[in-house]
């Protein structure tokens, strides 16, 4: 009885403690996230800086309609989803595989050096890397020179609607896989070594250890990252594409953000930008919540 009461009191105390722990962070979010969210109303206005949020005209859904009234809106949307979708897929698979490969390397100094090197490209901006990529695929660049030894005629990769998307996806994965693998390496350290010992006792090969110990151990992290990455399904990477595309590949490479940028060249369009941001958030939220529900249902794992 006595014990039950102390437990109850403890339970109540810890509730308060939890709230107190949440408080500072929530205050920051209140001021710097929730308050500015009032700006979302701009999505339903024709916002003019000189008139302010209160004085600008209400236009209902006109900003959203605008996006779908563009003659190429379906093409732009498709380009965005295809490029962003494949990026999400490979930006999950490649870092995971790389983390696993690196985990197999048992020479510690090599492991560390490699890790430091692969995370480098992440710190170079696309302005810089675009030049590197474009040079790589030049008529007289390494790729074409290599292909020529097999008798292939030089290909104008960056001006080809067949190649533009794969190059965008590939170079993005290349830039980010090292940095992306950090999270999985950290997850690997969390796996109980006892499990490996037990598996070895059972005579499991390295391959089956991988399948039955390592992967299940990483699965929560992988699921979480996938769910979070899904929110980017409408963000195909403005900086990258903007620095590498050209009018020839508009049909496969023009994405929402590059299009909105060009609309903005005629005078900043804050309302359109807000509307598209809102649309992206809604789609992202839907996908992320579905992912969470699906993982609860099928893997019995709650991500959030």
């Amino acid at each position: 009885m006595q014990l039950a009461r102390t437990q109850k009191k403890q339970h109540k105390d810890s509730q308060l403690m939890y709230h107190l722990m949440m408080l500072p962070g929530m205050l920051f979010l209140l001021v710097f996230s929730f308050v500015p969210m009032a700006g979302i109303v701009m999505a339903f206005q024709n916002y003019i800086p000189a008139k302010g949020i209160l004085g600008s005209d209400w236009v209902g859904l006109a900003n959203f309609k605008y996006m779908f009234q563009i003659p190429d809106s379906m093409q732009i949307l498709a380009n965005t989803v295809i490029i962003a979708g494949w990026k999400i897929v490979f930006n999950t698979i490649v870092p995971v595989v790389f983390a696993l490969l690196l985990n197999e390397i048992r020479v510690n100094w090599a492991k560390r050096t490699i890790q430091t090197v692969v995370y480098l490209p992440n710190f170079l901006s696309w302005v810089v890397l675009a030049t590197v990529v474009i040079n790589l695929f030049d008529y007289h660049g390494p790729v074409n020179t290599f292909l020529q030894t097999f008798g292939v005629k030089p290909i104008l990769f960056m001006g080809s609607n067949d190649w533009f998307r794969p190059i965008m996806i590939g170079s993005d994965v290349w830039k980010g896989f090292g940095y992306g693998s950090i999270i999985y390496l950290a997850a690997l350290t969390g796996i109980d070594p006892g499990l490996y010992e037990a598996a070895e006792m059972d005579g499991a090969s390295r391959w089956s250890q991988l399948l039955h110990v390592t992967l299940p151990g990483m699965l929560p992290t992988i699921m979480m990252m996938t769910a979070l990455n899904l929110t980017n399904i409408l963000n195909a990477g403005f900086d990258q594409i903007f620095n590498m595309y050209n009018p020839i590949v508009y049909q496969t490479g023009d994405i929402i953000d590059t299009y909105v940028y060009r609309v903005g060249l005629l005078g900043q369009q804050y309302s359109l930008g807000t509307a598209i941001g809102l649309l992206k958030s809604l789609v992202g939220a839907t996908l992320m919540i579905s992912a969470n529900e699906a993982s609860k249902k099928f893997a019995n794992m709650q991500i959030f």
Partner: peptide, 23 residues
């Protein structure tokens, strides 16, 4: 922690939505 999910939803909401740079 009873209020856990409420907080979580608020946080995720804050992660996904924003009012843009002017506000």
């Amino acid at each position: 922690f009873h209020a856990r999910n409420i907080y979580m939803n608020l946080i995720i909401f804050a992660m996904l939505f924003n009012g843009g740079m002017i506000p």
